[in-house]
Computed example of a mutant assay.
Amino acid sequence: MDGVKLHGVWASPFSTRVVWALKLKGIPFDNIEEDLSNKSALLLQYNPVHKKIPVLVHGRRPVCESMVIVEYLEETWPQYPLLPTDPHERAVARFWVKFIDEKGLNVWMVYRSVGEEQEKAMRESLEMLSILEEHGPNKGKKFFGGDSINIVDIAFGGVAYWMGAIEEVSGGKMFDAVKFPRLNAWMADFECLPVIAENLPDQGKLRKHLARLREKRLSLSAHK
């Protein structure tokens, strides 16, 4: 089989989720940076339905959608397990991944919107954070997976790290360290882990990138 290739974008939380999983499992891969304003023929070939990143290519066979890719990696490479062995615990982990993927979209709506629409997205983002604060990492444990990162940590990491940049760029406040002490501690533990820290986009560069895209998006909306 050919090696592993990842079609992604440096600033994308969805691409970064896959990078974390690959790095945690020690899987060598070629990173192919896509230009979403001029998508490559290979990306369109590999993901003809959504035409989005990330796409993992393993043995010339593509796998799409970030958390689907992470599960594929889990099933293909057993080293550094990202899912529990107990069937019920696996189901619970998948529940939280689905919850984060669905509710985390509100964080991006804060970035993409203004006015009442943004306020609604902020309220729903705060509701998500409140639920995760209550049901997140157990006391005495660093991560959702216990003492080591699992698939839920990877899913939420793709929301948490981008939240600060989104708040600054959009002006929509969501995260309060005092209100969410458990999540705040989780973020600190997660982001200082070398394999995570070494594979995070630079915050300054990320904020400039998001600000530029948001300005362009709002400008196009105003002229419709």
Rank of each mutant, 00 (worst) to 15 (best):
M187H: 08
L200Q: 03
L200T: 03
D176F: 08
E191Y: 06
V195Q: 04
R217Y: 11
K216P: 02
F180H: 11
A177K: 15
A197K: 12
K205G: 08
A188E: 13
R217C: 09
W186S: 05
V195S: 03
L218M: 12
A197D: 09
R212C: 14
G204T: 10
H209T: 09
L220W: 04
S221F: 01
A222M: 05
V195P: 00
A177M: 13
E198W: 00
D202F: 07
L206H: 13
M174G: 03
L193P: 02
Q203M: 15
A211C: 02
M187W: 11
F180I: 01
C192F: 04
R214V: 15
A222D: 05
D202C: 13
L183C: 05
N184F: 00
M187R: 12
F175P: 04
L220N: 09
C192W: 01
F175V: 13
D202K: 02
G204P: 02
V195D: 07
L206N: 14
H209K: 06
S219V: 00
M174V: 13
W186H: 07
E191M: 07
A185F: 03
N184A: 09
K216A: 14
N184D: 07
P181Y: 11
L206C: 14
R207E: 14
K205Q: 14
D202A: 11
A188V: 12
V195N: 00
R182Q: 10
P201K: 05
R182F: 09
N184E: 05
R212P: 04
L210G: 03
V178S: 14
P181S: 10
L218P: 04
K208H: 13
M187F: 11
L200G: 02
D189N: 11
N199E: 09
D176V: 09
G204V: 07
G204M: 06
P194L: 05
V195Y: 01
D189I: 00
H209P: 02
P201F: 10
A188D: 10
L193M: 12
A197P: 00
V178W: 12
D202Y: 05
D189C: 02
L210W: 02
V195M: 00
K224T: 06
K224L: 06
A185L: 05
E198G: 01
V178R: 11
K179A: 12
D189S: 08
E191H: 08
F190E: 07
V178L: 12
S219L: 04
D176R: 08
W186C: 09
L213C: 06
M187V: 14
K208P: 01
F175H: 13
V178N: 14
R212I: 13
D176W: 07
K216D: 14
L183A: 04
R212N: 14
F180D: 02
F180R: 00
R212K: 15
K216V: 10
D189E: 10
L218K: 03
V195A: 03
E215M: 06
K224V: 08
E215C: 04
L206M: 15
S221M: 03
F180L: 07
H223C: 08
A222W: 00
A211Y: 04
K216N: 12
H209N: 05
P194T: 07
A188P: 00
K208S: 14
W186P: 04
L210D: 03
H223R: 07
A185V: 01
H209A: 08
K205I: 13
E215D: 12
R182Y: 08
P194V: 04
K224N: 09
R214S: 15
